[in-house]
């Protein structure tokens, strides 16, 4: 890939990540700017500190905003914003990684 092609690929991921951050902040009424969330930030426990009730809200929000049902997915989907982006926009999906689960 050329540098311009790489930039375009990165921009597509950044755009999806930005949509997800905006959705999280809006749906969960978080007192932060969406841009303050980083793409690799943990969403649960340490990090954004979401909990299991927040997951339920996000399932609904993701289906409404991205048309993707994640109800049967494992928790690794919520490992980070960037990981979630792979699932709501499969064209972005990074190469498969080792799943210890």
């Amino acid at each position: 890939m050329t540098l311009d092609e790489l930039r375009a690929t990165a921009a597509a991921r950044h755009e999806t990540c930005a949509q997800i951050k905006k959705m999280i902040v809006s749906r969960l009424d978080l007192p932060i700017e969406p841009a303050w969330i980083t793409d690799d930030q943990p969403l649960f426990g340490r990090g954004l500190e979401l909990d299991s009730l927040d997951v339920l809200e996000l399932y609904v929000a993701i289906e409404a905003e991205f048309g993707v049902a994640l109800y049967d997915s494992d928790m690794s989907v919520f490992g980070s914003v960037s990981r979630l982006a792979d699932h709501v926009n499969p064209t972005l999906a990074a190469p498969a990684l080792v799943d210890q689960a």
């Binding site: 990165a10 991921r13 943990p42 960037s82 990684l97």
Partner: peptide
């Protein structure tokens, strides 16, 4: 503008791929 997962880059002489976290679940 290049800090994103899913890109093929060269580190030294080796081709690598950028990742989403966590890198191991």
């Amino acid at each position: 503008d290049l800090a994103a997962a899913g890109l093929k880059l060269t580190v030294g002489d080796t081709e690598v791929t950028t990742l989403t976290s966590p890198y191991v679940t």
